[in-house]
Design a protein around this nucleic acid. Structure first.
Lengths: 190, 190
DNA sequence: GAAACGAGAGAACGATCGTTCTCCATCATT
DNA sequence: AATGATGGAGAACGATCGTTCTCTCGTTTC
């Protein structure tokens, strides 16, 4: 097993375990068992749990935004793309292992204690906001900044509400609210 | 020190420590030190950490909703009360010890492991939704249910976004979005 | 073929966790 | 004054944490 494969297996194990059970509830030994990578190699690649947690979050950030962007980009017209975000959220919420936003969860658990984790979480939210800003601008909003911030709030609210209630319904509520926001901002809806 | 005072001091210590650092990061010994209540008495009143965490959440639920309702009730007209919720949020976000939603944070940390905690969190969110439903109905919305759900999503999103970015600004974004939602629902705004 | 190395398995370490127990001082009751 | 219950301070317990170390073995290199 070469280094890149070991990294992948470690991050796969870290992601599924940390996301499902929370970070503090999962010990390094459990990641070793789940990944099949020895403890020695684990600490060679990620010299502390904090580093592993940050790497998990940063890889998840890239994949999560990539999946969202790929879904949204399939919509032919720029005007409907902002609302497509909430359609993607609804599909995500319905997945059986959905457990809320990994970044919000990690921030609540470690935001106080770990600056590295707090930074990764803030970077993720900033990138999502930047992405939404582009969508809203391309959809023709006169002032994309405030609208994008409102959509970001709606997305985060939908994620946490869906996690706690256990249903995908909040995605539709958020989509309706987003529709009202876009209409008020002068973006034509179909 | 009688029983009710011991309970109060324990819950005060639990609330400030759990809320600031997260539940798993705070040991029972630290609660003993902060409260000045002996470990023996602590376990007499709260026979396990799980019970203490649930009690902390349920007391905070009552106080939090009480403070919100008291603030909103001061608005003279029912039509402006739904938006007053977001004004209250903005004041809360500006408090120096604001660290996001205690319930979302606890759910992310313990929702998988502790049914008692998960139940307290779900109860809190259900009560908030019920309260918003009353506000929206009294403001004259034709269909208060969907509107209340949208406001609940906005409130949760504002809380988490404010916690991560560290600014109270998301309250204003959520308020703007709520205004658009209410207008679309036919509720007159000033 | 021998020597040096790298990696895996898992024991070991010190710290800390939730929880219980021991010891002793205090106080109300006989 | 003697007794018994109560509660506080904190040691103790077993478990588990993150991290390091030991031991062994297969591989590589001269």
């Amino acid at each position: 097993m070469d280094t890149t494969e070991a990294d992948g297996r470690l991050l796969d194990a870290a992601e599924s375990l940390f996301y499902e059970h929370g970070v503090q509830a999962v010990g390094m030994d459990r990641i070793r068992t789940a990944s099949g990578v020895s403890l020695k190699r684990l600490y060679q690649r990620f010299p502390s749990k904090d580093v592993l947690v940050e790497a998990y979050l940063r890889r998840r950030d890239g994949r999560w935004r990539g999946a969202l962007a790929a879904y949204v980009a399939e919509r032919p017209s720029a005007a409907e793309r902002p609302l497509a975000v909430f359609d993607w959220l609804e599909e995500w919420f319905a997945e059986p292992d959905f457990r809320g936003c990994a970044f919000i969860n990690a921030y609540g658990e470690l935001g106080t204690a770990s600056p590295a984790v707090a930074g990764a979480v803030r970077d993720h939210k900033a990138e999502v906001l930047r992405y939404l800003h582009g969508l809203v601008r391309d959809a023709g909003a006169a002032e994309p900044g405030p609208v994008a911030e409102q959509l970001a709030v709606l997305a985060d609210g939908a994620i946490t509400t869906a996690a706690i209630t256990g249903t995908p319904a909040p995605a539709r509520s958020a989509r309706e609210a987003a529709s009202a926001v876009l209409k008020a901002a002068g973006v034509a809806q179909r």
